[in-house]
Design a protein around this nucleic acid. Structure first.
Lengths: 133, 133
DNA sequence: TTTAATTAAGACAATTATTATCCTATTTTA
DNA sequence: TAAAATAGGATAATAATTGTCTTAATTAAA
């Protein structure tokens, strides 16, 4: 898959929250510090919340914090939360969109590749990302 | 990177030409048989020609044929001919587009992944693709 | 109990990328 | 010279991505 800007933002955001540990942070702060348009970030945080990666609280003293240990969050988790399944080709996600898929000798290549990429991204946790210099 | 429909068409097209061996085929035939919009395919063939993957001849008796042995053409060649460099994230192609890239701990991941994907796709030649059932 | 600060949700606008078409050269062979 | 083919450029149509705005709901504190 192509990593979109939205996913890049999401990664930056989780990176920031990972560094903040348990602390609750408001959208505004993340937006300013991580250079992300505020109302766009708000949308992204909604998705991350639904995916169980961050948790939100409303009202005064509200904001966002990680819902899990950074060790338990991988790059793949973020990508899937924002973009959905991580296939490089649509047919690696849903075979039926292509009328050649039954006999197509290329199709298995996309499937293998998807697996390879997913495996790789699953290993990259945010604990690793914040510890690396 | 995301494989676009255009690239899928290009692959289909080269697959067809590979099966045709040395024979010269006109755009119309490829378009009909491979289910690709004709004038779009014409554009795609121009790119494949510029990339040295197919060669064209004009006039009556003109058309397209492979410029190389299918053994020497890989999926990566087609992707690069149509979409350009094969990074999943823009920053894996050009570091400078991101103002965080100097200290970004995620950046190396995209670079590794790009290499991994390229290696994989380079190994898949059209000889293999037409021999597989 | 009211107010201020926060997120939630949905509609929509703007921008960019992709897909597709069409028209006019140019080339080549018969 | 005519017919059949590709080359190239302009442009239209569609879809995806990015971004904004407004209103509602929630919460803590004054």
């Amino acid at each position: 898959m192509q990593i979109t800007r939205q996913t890049d933002y999401a990664i930056r955001c989780v990176l920031y929250l990972s560094r903040m540990r348990e602390r609750v942070v408001v959208v505004d702060d993340i937006a300013v510090i991580m250079d992300i348009p505020k109302s766009f970030l708000a949308k992204i945080l909604q998705r991350l919340t639904k995916a169980g990666i961050v948790k939100s609280s409303r009202g005064i003293k509200g904001g966002f914090q990680l819902a899990k240990n950074p060790r338990q969050i991988s790059l793949l988790d973020i990508i899937e939360a924002i973009q959905g399944p991580a296939g490089m080709n649509r047919c690696a996600i849903n075979k039926d969109i292509c009328r050649f898929s039954k006999t197509c000798t290329v199709h298995p290549v996309w499937v293998e590749l998807r697996q390879k990429v997913e495996q790789h991204l699953k290993k990259v946790t945010f604990q690793k990302l914040i510890k690396l210099k």
